Every structure is written in C-alpha cells, then in structure tokens.
Simulated scan of single mutants.
Amino acid sequence: MTARVYSRDHVGSLEKGLQVMEILARHPDGLTLSDMALATGLTRSGSRRFLLTLVETGYATQSGRLFTLSPRLLTVARAWLQGATLWSHAEPVMRGVAAALNESCSAAVLSGEDVVYVARVAGRRILSVALNVGTRLPAWCTSMGRVLLSNLSKDELTRFLATATIEKRTAKSMTNRKQLIAEIAKVAQQDFAIVDGELEIGLCSIAVPIRDGSGRIIAAINVSTQSERFSAAEIRQQVLPQLRKAAKAIEDFASF
C-alpha cells in the first residue's frame, strides 16, 4: 500500500465526512453506527459525530439504529448537473447513438477508485445492472474506467492499482495488477476499451475517451450491451465508429 501525501491545506475531517456520505450512498437500506465504524475505520464515537452532523444538516436521516442518506443530496447533484453545460449538450448526441444501436449510452468521469456516471441514455433492452446519473462503479473492471485510467502515467497507474480494491466480480474479472497495467496500456494505444463479462456476466461494453483542448482525457463515453448481441468483431465494426463520432461532436462543442 502506498501512503497518501496531503498538502498543508488538506482538511482531514472534511475528507472523513465525505467518506461517510459515500459509504451511506452505497448502502441505501441504511447502516448502523457499528457498521459505519467498521466501514470507515473510525471509532464509534467518531462515526456517531459524523452521522449525527449529517442528520442535523439534513443530508441524512435516522430511523432507530439505521442511518440513511436523505434526498437533499440530490439537490446538490441536480444543481451541479444543471450547470454542466457540456453534459447538457452531450445528452442529445448520446441519444442519437442509443437510438441508432438500440443500446444504452453513458458518459462518466473518474472519482477516486470509481467512475461516476454524469450522463446516461438507456436503451430498450434491460440489463440487470441498475445504472443512473450518479452511479459509481469500479474503474478497473469497466470500459470507461480503463479509458480514464489510460490517461495516467505508468507510476500513477501503479499507485492507483496498489491502493484500489480489486476483487473478483465474475469468473472473467481480470484481477492481476500486472495484467491490468498491460491491458490499460493497450487501451491507451488503441484509444478504446472493451470489457466483456468482467463486471457482470453477459454485460459487454465499449468506451472511447473525451478529451479537452490539450488532449487530456476528461471523461469517457460508452455503449453497453448484452454479449449475445455483439461479438468482439461486431462491436468494433458497428459500435466503435459511432462512439468515436459522438465523442468528437462532444469535444467540438466544449470550450475548455
């Protein structure tokens, strides 16, 4: 494990409070004080202070022993999304991709160990993974995550994978860190990523980068489908060109 180095301006208590919120977000059925202490590594008294502060400020609710996030957090997310002109523009572009392929099209950014969905147009076919704006998924085993990770230097990627939680999601999940480094290097070279069955058996996705004016990858856009719908060759031939065209349209609009 590589120790994290913080600046003098780092506010540790704020980081811990945000960690508590993120953990609550991953447990919509609620967590007890003991659950939160175990998940965060905080003491029970420390966890209690953070949880009760969230309750008092309206970001969480308490029912008996269970703490859950409140809808107030959605207000913050909605305000951010309404101000994100790029994603407002991207949505109709993505809708065109989804309609042409009859599949889901999404965009995401990197946040910690995860990708966070910032825009999504659902296709007609329903997959068992429930995905919406704000959904977080592990970056290492998703197509958009690997595209975003391909923007890191080799040293940055090594540090990322050294601290990331990597565990088998399916029998096909690539969990060997050296193999992941090689796979992400391949993604950087070919400028797209395909992940088949590593997050969920039967779920296949392909992603391409969205770059700013300097060429830096700031987001990724993907199409997710059922493996039985497209072979690897078909997804390259039929989906990749449309994704690249959509990414170019989003990049052309953006004024970075």
Rank of each mutant, 00 (worst) to 15 (best):
F50D: 01
R78Y: 09
I194F: 01
L240H: 10
E22I: 01
R48W: 14
T170N: 06
K178M: 07
A139P: 03
L199K: 00
N102W: 09
A193Q: 00
T32E: 11
P138V: 01
S255Q: 14
R211Y: 06
L33G: 10
E234V: 02
L74A: 08
Y117S: 05
G96N: 12
L161H: 09
L127G: 14
S45Y: 09
D155V: 13
A60K: 08
R177K: 02
R177I: 00
E198Q: 07
V133C: 06
G17A: 08
K245L: 13
T53H: 10
M94G: 04
L74V: 00
E251Y: 12
V129A: 11
L66K: 15
A25L: 12
F50Q: 05
V97D: 05
L161E: 09
G46C: 07
D155M: 11
E15A: 15
L52P: 02
T2F: 15
G96Q: 10
M1D: 07
G30M: 11
G145Y: 06
V223Y: 12
I126P: 11
A77W: 12
G83T: 02
G46N: 13
A247Q: 05
P92G: 10
V116G: 00
D35I: 05
R124I: 09
P138Y: 03
T163H: 13
D9G: 12
D9H: 13
G123F: 12
T32F: 10
S34Q: 14
A164S: 15
A130V: 12
W140V: 09
R229I: 03
S63V: 10
M144G: 01
G112D: 13
I210Q: 04
T43Y: 08
P241Q: 06
S173N: 04
R229L: 08
L110P: 08
V76K: 06
R236C: 12
V118E: 08
E15I: 03
A162K: 14
N132Y: 11
E228G: 15
R26N: 10
A25W: 06
S111G: 11
A98S: 15
L73N: 04
A130S: 12
R177L: 01
A77T: 01
L51T: 09
L24G: 04
S214M: 13
R4T: 12
L73S: 08
Q190S: 01
A171P: 00
F192N: 00
N151Y: 04
T68F: 08
A90H: 03
G30K: 09
L24Q: 06
R95K: 15
A185F: 02
L54R: 06
A233W: 04
Q19I: 02
D9R: 12
T170C: 05
R136E: 09
A84R: 09
G46E: 15
P209A: 14
C105F: 07
E251T: 11
T163A: 15
V115D: 05
D9K: 10
T142N: 02
R216Y: 13
I218W: 14
G41I: 00
E198N: 02
F192V: 00
V55W: 13
L52F: 11
V20Q: 07
S150T: 04
F192G: 00
R72I: 01
R159G: 11
K168T: 13
E113V: 06
Q19V: 02
Y6C: 05
S227V: 10
R159F: 13
E200A: 12
L24D: 02
